[in-house]
Design a protein around this nucleic acid. Structure first.
Length: 561
RNA sequence: AACCCGGUGGUGUAAUUGGUAGCACAACAGAUUUUGGUUCUGUUAGUUCAGGUUCGAGUCCUGGCCGGGUUACCA
């Protein structure tokens, strides 16, 4: 009911914003930003941040900037910039003309750095990486001052300018903020502001060989864009004192940083590092593998933007680490697709059925509803004939009590068609059932019996003569345990929990003929099976379908017990 | 024994800021159903612990316990 951003209860972020609006702290204006680093593809965790930032701006009549945090040229590229823009648009958000890059601010950042040097708040440190690390101390012991900490302003300025001019090799010097080497926060122990990197940047090319760090860039970028609320994830909580320190030291507009909990899902991993490892290690087939929680993977899988937005609205925003059950996402997908996806019939694991009293040369077209949840979707005609494909699971030779489907001597309904009765079971030499002989009751055309008799099951089917074949990819959880982090013993890592059966390919499934002209990206419900999406691997000769998610299946659940 | 943050049913969250612990998902039971789908109804189940303040504490205070983060020239 109120899962779509309830106006009733406010999460803590919105409460803070309400207070800031009341106290006049942000002069009645709301401006947020989504600041991805262009070094990877977006995943559903980013979607939560996107929904939060764009959602809040929209609710408060403000705007959201898209800003690429591109301060580390070694790992970033414009290929990622484009994919990220595409994914945000797909999710349903629009940054208008407010596309920015931290690299747009390199000149300003450099000037501010000189200002901090002149103010005695920054210095060039010529210690090696190892020496800096050692000098930082540990969380429980203070660090020691760098011997270069007391360089004169003139010397600092000179060295910094020569760093910029490219006179030094990488690692020779860094620029550090002069804060407090004994500070209880490790991050405040003279953090690094600039490092030398003789590499090309995807936007500024060779203009720079010194690059600012995240801490020296983010708050100032927010400030320059007049951001009011800089909303980020929990791991930046420790950085807030530094964020504040730079804004204050520089005397510039000071946005409020607010940290929220990131989205975690069961049965998968979410960190960029791990996703990269899965892709590069060949454990999945690229960034858009339908098993991945990347936005591209989810899209290819058949997940809708509306489902992702719905998930983000219902997981909420707090300050404690949470793991959301994957079934919540699955239900969001089902909820959306139930209303929008047209129904079709498809048989994945076929068993041949011969209707012995149906004439060989006869065929007819039967009317089927496209979407019972949406009358405007209309109907279609489905061909019927003497030989059909039925789902193997829908027949049992020796059924248990609660099995309602087809069995010897039992009558069931074929959806939109007829009642049929199983008269005979044909086995091969190994005793495996290969064919069923049934009789059809011609008076039940359309699926109702004039005498009012009822059947307990309605089965989907495909006319063998008319069926088109397709490859169907059945996906399961990427990992075989809910929490991939939890490993059996120390010698194992999270990858040992990879599910070997996360992809099962059905090379030849049978589909009703109307599916022959489905296009990549089209989504359908295969009745009684689940939601499926046409994969871009499809060709004119052979369609490929991805199973997005199964239908809820009370029988499967009952059987498991 | 450093610093920061956090702990509400199985899971994710809410509680008008001190006044009846509510919602969603899951689980279970039932109704409806030409999808064992959808829809509808009902049931089970919770404030980390110990003190304190108060007429009254999930909320405020003190202490304990548990969990996460922090020792990158990544973001």
């Amino acid at each position: 009911m109120n899962d779509s951003t309830s106006s009733e209860s406010r999460d803590f972020v919105r409460q803070i914003i309400d207070e800031d609006l009341r106290s006049g702290r942000c002069d009645g204006r709301i401006r947020t930003r989504f600041p991805p680093e262009p070094n990877g593809y977006l995943h559903i965790g980013h979607a939560k941040s996107i929904c939060l930032n764009f959602g809040i701006a929209e609710e408060y009549g403000g705007l959201t900037n898209l800003r690429f945090d591109d301060t580390n040229p070694e790992t970033e590229s414009s290929e990622y910039v484009e994919s990220i823009k595409e994914d945000i648009r797909w999710l349903g958000f629009d940054w208008g003309d407010r596309l920015y890059f931290a690299s747009d601010y390199f000149d300003q950042l450099y000037e501010w750095a000189e200002q901090l040097i002149r103010d005695g708040r920054a210095y060039v440190c010529s210690l090696s990486l190892e020496e800096i690390r050692a000098g930082r101390g540990t969380p429980s012991e203070p660090g020691t001052d760098s011997p270069y900490r007391s360089r004169s302003v003139e010397e600092n300025l000179d060295l910094f300018r020569r760093m910029k001019a490219g006179e030094f090799p990488e690692g020779a010097h860094v620029l550090r903020a002069k804060i407090d080497m004994a500070h209880p926060h490790m991050l405040m122990r003279d953090p690094i502001m600039y490092r030398i990197r003789h590499v090309e940047h995807h936007r500024t090319g060779r203009k720079w060989c010194i690059y600012p760090t995240y801490d020296y860039t983010h708050g100032q970028s927010d400030s320059l864009e007049k951001i009011t609320h800089s909303i980020c994830t929990l791991e930046f909580e420790n950085h807030r004192p530094l964020y504040d320190w730079f804004c204050e030291a520089l005397g510039i507009h000071h946005p409020r940083q607010i940290e929220f909990n990131r989205l975690n899902l069961t049965w998968t991993v979410m960190s960029k590092r791990r996703l990269l490892e899965l892709v590069e290690g060949g454990h999945v087939n690229g960034w858009d593998d339908p098993r991945l929680p990347t936005l591209r993977g989810l899209r290819r899988r058949g997940c809708t933007p509306a489902a992702i937005r719905s998930l983000c609205a219902r997981v909420g925003v707090t300050k404690h680490n949470a793991v959301t059950d994957m079934v919540v996402l699955e239900n969001c997908i089902r909820e959306d697709l139930n209303k929008t996806a047209e129904r079709r019939m498809a048989v994945l694991d076929p068993i041949r059925v011969v209707l012995t009293n149906y004439p060989e040369d006869q065929e007819e077209l039967l009317e089927a509803v496209n979407n019972p949840e949406d009358e405007s979707a209309g109907t279609r005609m489905v061909p019927f004939s003497r030989e059909l494909w039925l789902e193997r699971d829908d027949f049992m030779e020796d059924p248990p009590k609660k099995f309602f489907r087809l069995a010897p001597g039992r009558e069931v309904r074929l959806r939109y068609a007829y009642f049929i009765r199983c008269e005979n079971v044909v086995h091969d030499s190994d005793g495996r059932v290969i064919e069923l002989h049934c009789t059809v009751d011609p008076d039940t055309r359309g699926g109702t019996a004039p005498d009012g008799r009822r059947v307990k099951a309605t089965l989907h089917w495909v006319s063998a003569r008319h069926a088109v074949s397709a490859e169907v990819r059945l996906y399961d959880h990427l990992f075989s345990v809910e929490h991939p982090d939890e490993v059996a013993d120390e010698s194992q890592d999270w990858k040992s929990n990879l599910n070997p059966d996360s992809l099962r390919v059905v090379p030849e499934a049978w589909l009703e003929p109307s599916l022959a002209d489905a296009m990549p990206g089209d989504r359908f419900q295969f009745e009684r099976l689940g939601y499926f999406c046409v994969d871009p691997d499809s060709s004119d000769e052979k369609k490929v379908f991805n199973r997005t998610v199964t239908l809820r299946d009370a029988w499967a659940r009952a059987r498991k017990k």
